[in-house]
């Protein structure tokens, strides 16, 4: 089982004819994802990695549907239209890999996701990977390295940094701990599935026994995760590391922003909230595997 990928889900790649699109289609296919084709307007009829390219998502649905998931590798300014196209064509999960997507575009995508009862991961995400199930996005780089890096097991990973998502999974694996699913929530201020949403999914995933979360200063995702724990929306053990202790406080330009954040967003605030909610804090990045092993032992959970 996995939190966002299902072996039987049909997946398309929007922007499959581009450089990244091609490379990562190869990765996804090689790692077992059920990619059935791609979409690039104006390039319908071409073949990439042995798969058909269609002119629109609707055309893809007609030809090979039902398509549940789409992974986007397209230039940032074109993401909004492509994402909304996918939603209107009935796609339920999109993975937005590109970065620099304008924030107002993301707000519009978010509104469309609500309207069509769909979800999106990202923007600015490497995607998600579940060993033995598949990968959406570009986690692992190539199928060969993904197989080398990630070991299957019972710990979930949710991270605001892409490289860190894979790194944590790799270092856990070296310490003998396998992962169930690893999710990069995306690096931008607004993302479709922030930490609490990912934790909710890990909560209902029977194969996940504990979660490692990599947070960062800024925003309120980690405080919101702590709130979710307090309200019993997430009951499994959580191991957290917050990056940015060494960074100086950001300049705050908006006063009204301070009202809704209410002093949240700082390193100490996040640590305090998570501690109060009962999460285990890894004091350094290198200590994450150690702390995880300890937590699993304390709770009597086997490590693979």
């Amino acid at each position: 089982m996995a939190v966002l990928i299902d072996k039987t889900d049909k997946v398309i790649v929007q922007g499959m004819t581009g450089r990244e699109g091609r490379t990562r289609t190869k990765l996804m296919l090689g790692y077992g994802t059920n990619v059935v084709g791609g979409v690039t307007p104006g390039r319908g009829g071409e073949v990439v990695e042995g798969l058909p390219v269609w002119d629109s998502v609707l055309e893809a649905q007609d030809a090979a549907g039902p398509i549940n998931t789409s992974v986007l590798f397209i230039p940032a300014p074109l993401v909004k239209s492509a994402a909304i196209e996918a939603f209107t064509a009935g796609v339920k999960l999109i993975v937005i890999v590109p970065d620099r997507v304008p924030l107002h575009d993301v707000m519009e995508i978010k509104a469309a996701a609500v309207e069509y009862d769909a979800d999106f991961l990202g923007p600015n995400t490497l995607g998600t990977l579940s060993p033995g199930v598949g990968v959406l996005g570009m986690m692992g780089g190539s199928a060969e390295s993904a197989r080398k890096f990630f070991k299957s097991g019972t710990v979930g990973v949710s991270s605001r940094s892409g490289g860190i998502t894979s790194s944590i999974a790799y270092y856990l694996g070296k310490a003998g701990i396998g992962v169930s699913s690893i999710v990069h929530v995306g690096g931008d201020p607004i993302v479709g599935l922030p930490h609490p949403e990912v934790l909710r999914r890990f909560e209902s995933d029977p194969d996940t026994k504990a979660v490692v979360m990599f947070g960062e200063i800024g925003g309120t995702q980690e405080e919101d995760a702590a709130e979710l724990i307090e309200s019993s929306g997430f009951t499994k053990p959580l191991i957290a590391y917050i990056g940015g202790k060494g960074a100086r406080e950001g300049t705050r330009f908006s006063h009204a922003g301070a009202i809704i954040e209410g002093g949240r967003g700082t390193y100490q605030g996040k640590i305090d909230a998570l501690k109060a909610a009962g999460a285990a804090i890894a004091p350094t990045y290198d200590a994450i595997p150690e702390v995880t092993i300890q937590v699993l032992k304390d709770r009597g959970i086997g490590i693979s």
Binding site: S159, S161, F214, G246
Partner: peptide
Amino acid sequence: GSGGGGSMMSMDAVSDQGFKVADF
């Protein structure tokens, strides 16, 4: 640094060693 979160975590590691970073 190389990669947002990786950069942040690496910066934490050098400041734990008592270094100061001139730039990010």
